[in-house]
Nucleic acid binder design. Structure first.
Lengths: 215, 215, 215, 215
DNA sequence: AATGAATGAGCCTTCATTCAT
DNA sequence: TATGAATGAAGGCTCATTCAT
């Protein structure tokens, strides 16, 4: 991320924006080079091929993602699990928003069945699952959270976190929302908070929470 | 769907399964033809090219989808909005499960920025939104549902409905769930019901619902 | 030419018009069939393939051409060679005009190097040359015509006869002539007559001819 | 024409010779590449496709053609129109002979109905017509030439100039002439001169000319 | 006599990559 | 570091033809 050749950076930017619109396989290296105003051969030179370029993007995205997650996860013993979970959600939303273009392409390419993806799964996403599970189980143990199947909770959480990046056009053109605006992100975070209070937190607390939330 | 040439059907099946694994752009017509044990030229002959094949898949998927949705939407005046919403969710989950392979590729390809997709948006998904909004607003008017922004509710609902088809590998390999099993679908439907009770229905009812649900 | 199936005729008409615009190799049998509103397979059925269709056109064109030529060539001993030559020219122009679409494509396809063309050369065009040579040599022998190299005369004559069919667009769009109009044909025939008088007929006669012509 | 990559040149040479024998549409890029001992992709690389290759050939042919024509057209006020016209004819014959292979294919392809051809018409051939008309009209004004319709004169001239390239096989195999030999070109030029004297120049002069010519 | 399905061969173009410079 | 030429492989598509009906 630090100091890297202007060329390398230009390629990355061009690639990300093209992959988002036309997908990885639908984009040619020549298009990328043209958009980046760079010679085609540089893509092979710097990234060892088109595949390598994608790998670079995906890996460095997840590297930062996990780092962010780990930071958010560090909680003191006195902190409630709920607060920790909310902080994690906040961090992820923030990270995704800051890297919104890469987020989008990563979430799509991850739906394919390639070697790269399988590797990502077994490293980064397993790690992510580990942290989420930790928080959830701690919360359950301390009766803060309802006794629920963590898998299903994680599934729902993940689906909501990735939604704005998987279907930005749907949000824009059908629901008339503006997923790229900071305002949207804040709103959406509140929705997720509500979801945490309502569906995860133990019922009594949740009822109170609703009152607080609505007041 | 009715009676169609063996060849046409074979092409569709091969295409769906390949598109799922390698994506539309990552799949060649020759691969499809080989897998379908059919001559390549038939793809152009029957679908007017590879693009047309995708279009055919997407459109016939949504045609059935909307039909299912419309059926589920027909509610008597005495029925509660909640029951209607639950029936809609059930129908969608059922339809998606029955067409799970097409569902998967449709949800992925829909994340690209093509003419086809934009057309689908403005016809099928706008229609879908219309129905969902109707139910939600009726429920709100009759105090059955909380006063919430329909856009955000729809967004969450859609994200959860599409999740199992967008990231099946994640479910399988990270969460160790089996999204293709009927059992999973039933379980997941309960989760969505819970989500309806908890986050949409008015709080009093929801509290009762939880009791019922947990009992 | 007599009674033949409607289908066969429709194919021929469509083919001729398409070959003229896009050339033989630039036209597909499917285009022909579509234009003729006939099933593609009929082309193979009736003409034994696309090649056979061309062959049919070329051969039947030249069959009629030679027949016309032979008729025009029959001259009584008392007739002047000049009159015979002029009648031949008239016949050819008439035949070409009546079959103007086929003429055009035949003259173009004849510029290629195929087996069909080579066969046509050695039969029809050699025959044509024979007749022209006969007339010319008779005329020379009788001092009606100047002593000239028949090859070059034939060459010039042929070039002028075929011109309107080889470059109709040039005539239309650059010279603003109307090669398809009967009026043009008459005018052009007069030009050729003038050419006969001026460049072939013995000089004294030619001078008189000019006077007559101009008066 | 100047310095250009070996590959580019090899492609052009191969293309010209193949187009001549089998026509543009009858020749495949692979054939060209094979004959040129070059990779197929280079055709698209250098000429932007097969169509572009033809365009390149046609345009650079006419570019040189017009240049030659313009040079020949520059006449001093003291020079007779006849001499100017003869010089133009000489230049064209020379240019065509020097580029005999391209000439042939250009004259044939020009008989098709494509966008390229229509463009060529309206630029180069209109220009050519302009120059020819200038000379002819000047000659007529000064009573050097007979009062004739320029269109028809141009038509005859053009037909004779292009003949050897449109039907070389006819000349070779039927008339037993050798259009590619320098000797033929000289002979043919004399024929055209004769044509100029006989059919264009005013009669008195023409009679003298014939005497000179025959002596 | 005429058709629609199906084929195998071939079309032109574009691909990602390499390599000498 | 960066380039333009050149490549072999593969891309999607269209071709003329065949065949059972």
């Amino acid at each position: 991320m630090a100091v890297q050749s202007k060329t390398k950076e230009k390629i990355i930017n061009a690639a990300v924006s093209l992959f988002n619109v036309k997908g990885f396989n639908g984009t040619s290296v020549r298009e990328i080079a043209t958009k980046a105003k760079v010679n085609v051969a540089n893509i092979s030179y710097y990234f060892d091929g088109k595949e390598g370029l994608l790998e670079n993007l995906v890996i460095s995205f997840f590297e930062g993602y996990i780092q962010e997650l780990e930071q958010a996860f560090q909680f003191s013993n006195h902190e409630s699990s709920k607060d920790c979970l909310l902080r994690i959600i906040h961090s992820i939303l923030k990270y995704q928003h800051e890297n919104r273009n890469v987020s989008r392409l990563v979430y799509r390419e991850i739906s394919l069945d390639t070697t790269l993806i399988r590797e990502v799964m077994t490293t980064y996403l397993t790690k992510e699952k580990y942290y989420l599970k930790m928080v959830l189980e701690r919360g359950m143990k301390e009766k803060e959270f309802k006794k629920l199947q963590t898998s299903f909770i994680i599934m729902q959480l993940k689906s909501m976190l990735s939604m704005p990046y998987l279907h930005p056009q749907y949000l824009t053109e059908v629901l008339h929302l503006l997923p790229h605006e900071q305002y949207f992100v804040s709103q959406y975070e509140k929705e997720l908070e509500r979801w945490v209070y309502m569906t995860i937190c133990t019922s009594y607390e949740s009822v109170n929470a609703i009152r607080m939330h609505l007041s």
